[in-house]
Amino acid sequence: ETKLKYATSAPVKTPWVAHANQVAAAVQEATGGSVKIDVFPGSQLGNEQDVIRQVARGRVQMGAFSNTAASLIVPEISLLAAPYIWDNVAQADCALDNHMDAVFQDRFKEMDLVFLGWTEVGQMGYASAKPIESLTELSGKKVRVAPSKTSSLTAESVGANSVMLPITEVASALQTGLVDSADLPGLAFTSLGIGKIAPHWIATNHSHQVGVVLMSRKVWSKLTPEEQTQMQAARVDPTILRKQVRGAEKMMFGKFEEAGGRIVHPEGEELDRWKQAGEQARLALVKELGDKGAAVYEQIQQAKRACSS
């Protein structure tokens, strides 16, 4: 019997931990119990930036990671979260499942990791305590960004003054005014209760966040060929998690509005302004990522074409 530790930063009772448990159950069933997975939610094994390196080193066997953590190992994956890189969610799903999957399988393999599938985190927007409802208003303000190039380039492209903060400090930072606004995934914003402090949300949906499930290649190569095939076959359909996350997002934003929260949906010219700024950030990001980044960017463009026809 092989025991595998599966790490995730998602807190218990969230769709992501449910997904991890589904993966664990599916693998156990497919291998007839010869591979057993223990899920460690809520960053129990350390924060994901540290754990993903431990997976590459083979100390932790597998885990689910956000785009931010994954881009420490394969920087080009940050392009998937680049502002307005997809025309719509359906296109993103199609491109990820049918085209980008293979691209990143190869890239992670080079880094001693086995890519086992996508997870869904949802759309990003900007939260603020005082009313900030447009790009012009956000410009010049102090904006919390996630510890990733994508997040800071995006905020800077709209003229914001970016302040990098871990998610644990976001609520206090918004309350004290250390930042005026925060770049957050919608579901994190609503489910962490940040909406109570920052009742204003711009649904820019500027970044579609997907995560990855990864396994250590050292551990993988110790499995028998049958177990490897069985594990591949046990991959949980990504559409289940997507549906759950998108459903939860919608429900939680409904609750947020009921509790007096205000959501602005940029449209028309305003949306165009956001997209123009996003394009700048996107190009800057591609430039920073060098040749490999340019190659992946091209593959994304091909995938988009294939998925819109």
Partner: peptide, 10 residues
């Protein structure tokens, strides 16, 4: 060997 890079600083 893994080419680990510092977050943000690269």
């Amino acid at each position: 060997e893994n080419g680990d890079i510092a977050p943000v600083l690269d």
